[in-house]
Amino acid sequence: MGSLDGRVAVVTGAGRGLGAAHAKLLAREGARVVVNDLQRGSEHPAADVVEEIRAAGGEAVASGHDITEWESGRALVELAVSSFGRLDVLVNNAGALRDQFLVNMSEEDWDFVTRVNLKGHFVPTRWAASYWRDRAKAGEEIRASVVHTSSSSGLFGNPGQANYIAAKAGVGMFSQAVATELERYGVRSNCIVPAARTRLTEAVPSVKKLMAAPEDDGAFDVYDPANVSPVVAYLATADCPITGGTFYVRGGHVTVVESWSRGPALDRDARWTVGELAQELPGLVAKVQSAR
């Protein structure tokens, strides 16, 4: 018996890296999986992952839908339902980078990265949400799960990635909005922040070196993408009680990430002057920064 027996999952960006690892583990845990990745000509990485899942005894179908396109998002959800009769889990994993310092970033760089990383989360979630709402209104018990993928850059910032940071920060808050809005229909929403070796991380030389596989074959590979997948699988289970959470995952380490919170404050029963703020506010900010 697997922890996801009877569940049907869609995983986007699942042709390689994190998404492929997620799809394979979900299948091993008993889920039937729609493996989504953009098809480019004869290259269809999702089909290769499907072959692996089927060879291991699992059930899966490939999808080449563009998850940034409105009708493709609808078709992706419909593929899950037509193939396996239902949809229980959506793992939003697709992402892209075009790093540039702000003064060199083009409009195309900004639009492409925010489209893939942020709109690419919104579109599938929108159509999955409509499906679950309709089932709930028809009287069905829904125990669905959406797992979104943010980034440490989106949480803590990183120079040269303004487009990616904005999109991934948006993903984190989008996940919380989904949790709040869809709870009434039996849908949970959580977000993971993976530290793993992928095509995106290997595109940055310093990060590629940091996340290189260990030379010792017997050593634990901290940055293996498969280390992140058990957290995704748990959040996808029908009985998981967690919603609105964000989790940083690195190797065997899992941190609960707190959302925006209020820090120390200035308070008085009168309007501040510019001069008074110049005296008081820098010290307040310095106190916060020194505590990091």
Rank of each mutant, 00 (worst) to 15 (best):
R143Q: 14
I165C: 03
S145W: 02
A136W: 14
A167L: 04
S153F: 05
T149H: 08
L155R: 11
S152P: 02
A167E: 07
G160Q: 10
E140S: 14
N163F: 00
G170I: 00
A167S: 05
Y164T: 06
K168L: 04
V171K: 00
S151E: 06
V171N: 00
A138S: 15
Q161L: 04
E141G: 12
E141D: 15
P159C: 11
K168P: 04
I142D: 12
A166S: 13
S152N: 09
R143N: 14
E140K: 11
E141N: 12
G160K: 07
G154Q: 05
H148V: 02
V171C: 00
H148T: 11
E140C: 14
A166F: 00
S151P: 06
T149Y: 02
G170A: 09
E141I: 06
N158K: 07
G154V: 03
K168A: 00
G160R: 10
G160W: 03
A144I: 12
A162S: 11
G170N: 03
N158P: 06
V171G: 00
Y164I: 03
R143L: 08
A144F: 02
A167T: 00
E140V: 14
Q161Y: 02
A136C: 12
K168E: 01
Y164G: 01
A167C: 06
V146W: 03
E141Q: 15
H148C: 09
S151R: 03
K137V: 14
P159H: 09
S145L: 08
S153V: 10
L155V: 12
K168W: 05
